[in-house]
Amino acid sequence: MILVAEGLRKLYGEFCALDGVSLGVGAGEFVSIIGPNGAGKSTLINILTGLTPPSAGTVRFKEREIHGLGPVGLARLGMARSFQLVHIFPDLTVLETLQAAVVARLGRGTRLFASLAGDRDVQREALEVAELFRLSDKRGALARHLPQGDKKLLDVASAFALRPEIILLDEPTSGVSTADKTAVMETLVEASKRIGLQAILQVEHDMDIVFAYSDRIIALHQGKVLADGPPSAIQADRYLIDTVIGRRARTH
């Protein structure tokens, strides 16, 4: 297991957003977290990525307790993420955004007088990622001017540019049109192979996508893990489908 969480609790005042969540993600796994709105999925991702401290419980990444590491430390250890609400650098171009990730990964941010344009490694890798995510046509565009779907893609692409071992994606296809969702997922899978990614943990609402791509599914409901198993087991559980996904899934 690369990433292991035990007994995670998160309290917002009186409100308990996560109530004793334990999970693990192993090498080679594609794990999806599902659950209704407000189930605590984003809270979970934010705790696993060191952005939010848990009220109780522990997270271990590569056998190491992440407490106090924070997002910067985790990124250096090999964890990357994207956000549910797109996080981009509005005034940077697509290419600059990817370059920033590569610069950070190679630890070249302290090169004060070096030329960014003359840094072959950074230029090449950033372009590679842009091509991988089909963003190379738009590489000169400011991130703020991209259509919503591309902003999301750029957020995800910059996470991949870190060449992490694990990546946590909070709804990577939200804001992407239904027709494009599969294309985005295909890109993700291809990119994962290319960079040698070990594991993906994603939050996803689209059940077709979830069932098609996941090795394992974790169902979250009111801050608790309701089920954790392969897609076949989840699909077979009528009660679970009803509570976690509701009406939407039954119409399929």
Partner: peptide, 25 residues
Amino acid sequence: IVHSPFGLCLKTIRDNPAKAETLGI
């Protein structure tokens, strides 16, 4: 300086510090 990798990192922080941190900056 502003056209160096350092300068680029500064701009990411100006634009979105939370995102910059997840990139390890």
